[in-house]
Design a protein around this nucleic acid. Sequence first.
DNA 1: AATTTTAACGAACTAAGTGTTTGATAACAT
DNA 2: ATGTTATCAAACACTTAGTTCGTTAAAATT
Lengths: 186, 186
Amino acid sequence: MDRRQQKTRDAIFKAFSKLIEQKRYENITVQEIIDEANIGRSTFYAHFETKDELLRALCTDIFSHVFSNELMSEKTHDFSGGNNGLEAKLTHILHHLMDSKTNIVGILSSHSGELFLRYFKDYLTEMFSKYLNEIKMNAPADFVLNHLVGSFAETVKWWIDNKMKYTPEETARYYIEVSCVNRITD
Amino acid sequence: MDRRQQKTRDAIFKAFSKLIEQKRYENITVQEIIDEANIGRSTFYAHFETKDELLRALCTDIFSHVFSNELMSEKTHDFSGGNNGLEAKLTHILHHLMDSKTNIVGILSSHSGELFLRYFKDYLTEMFSKYLNEIKMNAPADFVLNHLVGSFAETVKWWIDNKMKYTPEETARYYIEVSCVNRITD
DNA sequence: AATTTTAACGAACTAAGTGTTTGATAACAT
DNA sequence: ATGTTATCAAACACTTAGTTCGTTAAAATT
């Protein structure tokens, strides 16, 4: 990739991230991004067709870090405790959100969350689905999977909105406790 | 209320509901609403300051029907089964969504869902909170409440996105089954 | 080092939408 | 019958999105 392209792309990402901390996605204009990134108008449109596509690209960038290959690897057959069990993975995700350089929290808590959450849920779905065949409930598997993913995403949003008043460890434990996966392991 | 006002308000609501079935909220312009409702531009702004306020008003209208006084009344101390237990209430809500004249489904499944869902969750929170003190989990009450509300809202969205392939009765039962309230009543 | 390719620039432009103001008209309430 | 008020159309100022194009400069290629 051309060095100039890379520099421009970085500048746009950086400007966009900064802006998204300050105001909600909907109210950010392309003009503001351009000014903040200090690039030409036509340059922006040479990189991204729309603002939505920019957000999409940023999400992809971010999540490829949060959901590492290790995290997405096959489960180690335990839900709670353990080194690489579900609870540990969830804890890892929460830590990552808390510590991340790019302001994931700002994005997630912003109104732009919808698009962002869609990507988040896609990754979560992939992760949770590996645990699915061990969960025997009187409910269809697709229902259970959606419930697990949806409620964890809601939990994360709530956790962030409440200034992360519980630690990642606590939050993950509460989730496991309340979630239906809890009922198989006792 | 002036008959003219009422007529105009109805026309706007009707036009807006029709449009929201066809396209996502973000892409609906005030101009389109005006054209569809066949009213003057200044008339629209005499009624609603912004498009968001229009959506808010519509939501309030709709939910005051879905969440009837009876539904919000004190719980009758059973979670499942029963005439007025939690499961029955959830079933009632799902039925209402399915049968409603105004296209609630279109609104909920649309991208405009965020604002809409906020209102939905507010009502749900009020309803669920009445059951809360009976749920003893190793997790804080506010965490549990958010989990119940969030996961039910997610369930409804999923149910709609999947063309309501399960009946309201089934869906409510699955929810109770997977949810943590299930663990107190057996 | 010379040449070719390509990214960035800026300025101007079209198109579309937002929200406001105005004075006239007609429906409504008293 | 009189006063009030909702609606209307038309024009207005303003903002934003996205495109176009000729120019400049940086990068890749030879």
